[in-house]
């Protein structure tokens, strides 16, 4: 019981995730700044932001649905933290696993986006509502390619469990190289999920102020931002587990270092993506996702289907 609580709350649970996510936010912001020829924030900036936001007043708009408005950040945070426990990190075995946890993780990672929509919708402000509709429109564009990209490696491994999948690729490392298209698709979809340039359409500040989060302030905004930071880390861990399943044989400490390096690489790739691109329009984004990203994911699915048929026979 005590050990389980320690796992849940301290390591690798909430506290570790909190520190790790904010550290990764720093890496992302610093890289983004350096790539833009700026100095960038000091290492403690994300922590300082979190503390400062937490100390600020929470303002709930008069016409907003107060219960929904307050609950949504907590929901978002709970969903991403839960998803983390089913992802293999420094060993091929996740903290918890069962057959079909892949679907659960993908589902849990969709919840934050839904909470953004509901939060924006229940804020009843014009900008929030436009942001909310954009969030949902965008969700349908990147979610399907992401599902297909992550299911393709699962097909090859012939399992619905993330841990079993990692064990399979750990034993057959060469097969992981076949999932390159899926890796790129998943990276693009994760960028969309995190609502960052070029897919920051739902919170495009020059168009709709803060988008979904226009009415949020204080602790509630801090929780939302923490949820997004953790979502970035969890998303990066998921991609690392599915597409980069190497280096599990180096013991606990070595495995941990390799895990951090993998997450760093993915975070750096995402930061690079948002440095070199401009924000797309919503219809351009949807067209891009359905005409380019989805066919690429389908191609990966097809390759893996044929391969798994060849392997089994």
């Amino acid at each position: 019981m005590a050990l389980a609580l320690f796992h849940l709350l301290i390591f690798p649970g909430f506290l570790f995730l909190f520190v790790f996510a904010l550290a990764m936010e720093f890496v992302d912001r610093k890289l983004y700044a350096r790539l833009q020829n700026r100095v960038g924030p000091p290492w403690f900036q994300p922590f300082a932001d979190f503390i400062k936001l937490s100390a600020k007043e929470d303002i709930v708009p008069e016409k907003a649905d107060a219960i929904m408005f307050r609950l949504m950040p907590v929901f978002a945070l709970a969903a991403v933290v839960t998803a983390f426990f089913y992802i293999p990190m420094w060993g091929p075995q996740a903290l918890f696993s069962f057959s079909g946890d892949l679907i659960v993780v993908i589902y849990l990672l969709t919840i934050p986006t839904l909470t953004f929509f509901l939060a924006g919708w229940h804020s009843t402000s014009l900008f929030s509502m436009i942001g909310a509709t954009r969030t949902l429109t965008q969700l349908f564009a990147y979610e399907v390619p992401l599902f297909m990209a992550i299911l393709a490696p699962a097909l090859l491994a012939n399992t619905w469990s993330l841990s079993a999948m990692t064990v399979f690729y750990d034993q057959h490392p060469a097969y992981a190289g076949l999932n390159v298209i899926g890796f790129i698709v998943a990276l693009i979809a994760l960028q969309g999920k995190l609502e960052r340039v070029p897919f920051d359409i739902p919170e495009a500040e020059t168009e709709i102020v803060g988008g979904t989060f226009t009415e949020y302030s204080g602790r509630l905004l801090a929780l939302f931002r923490l949820a997004i930071d953790i979502e970035a880390v969890v998303g990066a861990s998921l991609i690392a587990a599915v597409f980069l399943p190497f280096g599990f044989g180096l013991g606990a400490a070595g495995g941990f270092v390799i895990y951090v390096v993998k997450v760093l690489i993915i975070i750096a790739l995402l930061a690079l993506l948002r440095t070199v691109l401009a924000r797309l329009r919503i219809e351009q984004m949807v067209i891009f996702c359905w005409k380019v990203v989805a066919p690429a994911a389908l191609l990966q699915l097809l390759i893996n289907l044929i391969l798994s048929g060849v392997l089994r026979s």
Binding site: L35, Q36, N37, R38, V197, P198, D200, A204, T206, T275, V276, L277, A278, R279
Partner: peptide
């Protein structure tokens, strides 16, 4: 113009 279309890198470069 870069900032308005969410291309902040252009903003930082041009202003530098």
């Amino acid at each position: 113009a870069g900032h308005e279309i969410g291309f902040d890198t252009l903003l930082m470069y041009a202003w530098r």
